[in-house]
């Protein structure tokens, strides 16, 4: 591990230890924050209980559905928009402002559209993630160096050879970035939806624990969720670094 990595680890462990000590000595109100050891206990209880395990499982399913849909639709839309130059340029200011709009206000509309089931939540996650995929796909396609395009012309490649052997590998890092965003945004969208209006899932379970003053369960679920999202992100980053290390000459 690098020096920065060790410092980071020490900082996190130190902060947790400090919090643990502060809580145990009553420096922080037990009603507001519980010691980290109790949080981990809560996380374990959440995994052990059938009810919360079902919530976690449901959330994960919805996130995966949202992720798959947003990757497919986002990539396809990005490819089409790249071709339709004029359309894309008209859409540019709208895409750039997209994330200022609180998407989940459309949840009631989705309930009417899809009924009271998992799909309104998947739709919110999808709406949150898909634009990040589109933006990154467009970015990747726009950044294919002109010299590569011209080289392909000189080598007299066919359309499909060009797509497979130039576009795909050249834009791959951006596709990957899009996928990373899609994972994070699918989580954010689905959980936000669960929080606001749903009757199941991790988001709902956290809100429920809060309302019934079950701090141990609430913090346990939050810790669980953060560890889950954090490890998915870390794994993706490590994989990405491995994939593109050679390219960057590292």
């Amino acid at each position: 591990m690098t020096r920065a990595g060790w410092i980071r680890l020490a900082l996190i462990v130190g902060a947790l230890a400090l919090l643990e000590a502060a809580c145990r000595h009553g420096l922080v109100s037990r009603h507001a924050v519980i010691p980290p050891s109790r949080m981990i206990e809560g996380a374990w209880n959440a995994i052990a209980a059938d009810e919360t395990r079902a919530d976690i499982w449901l959330t994960l399913q919805n996130v995966v559905l949202s992720l798959i849909l947003s990757m497919i639709v986002g990539t396809a839309a990005g490819l089409m928009l790249h071709k339709a130059t004029r359309f894309r340029r008209a859409l540019d200011p709208l895409l750039a402002s997209y994330y200022a709009v609180p998407t989940f206000v459309f949840y009631p509309l989705f309930i009417v559209l899809f009924g009271l089931n998992r799909w309104p939540l998947v739709a919110i996650g999808f709406l949150f993630a898909v634009v990040a995929v589109i933006i990154n796909t467009l970015d990747g396609l726009a950044r294919i160096p002109r010299a590569f395009v011209r080289t392909a012309a000189v080598m007299r490649l066919t359309r499909s050879q060009y797509a497979l052997h130039i576009v795909l590998p050249a834009a791959a890092p951006w596709f990957f970035t899009g996928a990373k965003f899609a994972v994070a945004y699918s989580f954010i969208g689905v959980i936000a939806g669960e929080f606001v209006v749903s009757g199941a899932g991790i988001g709902h379970a956290i809100a429920f624990a809060y309302n019934s003053f079950d701090n141990r369960m609430m913090y346990g679920l939050i810790v669980l969720l953060f560890v889950l999202v954090g490890s998915v992100n870390t794994l993706l980053s490590l994989w990405e670094r491995k994939l593109y290390a050679r390219r960057a000459g590292r």
């Binding site: 010299a147 590569f148 080289t151 000189v154 590998p169 050249a170 791959a172």
Partner: peptide
């Protein structure tokens, strides 16, 4: 581009993934 012509550009056109 006709067959039998090769071009080398000023920009680096080597493919970094190969």
């Amino acid at each position: 581009v006709p067959d039998g012509i090769g071009v080398v550009f000023q920009e680096d056109a080597s493919f970094p993934w190969l």
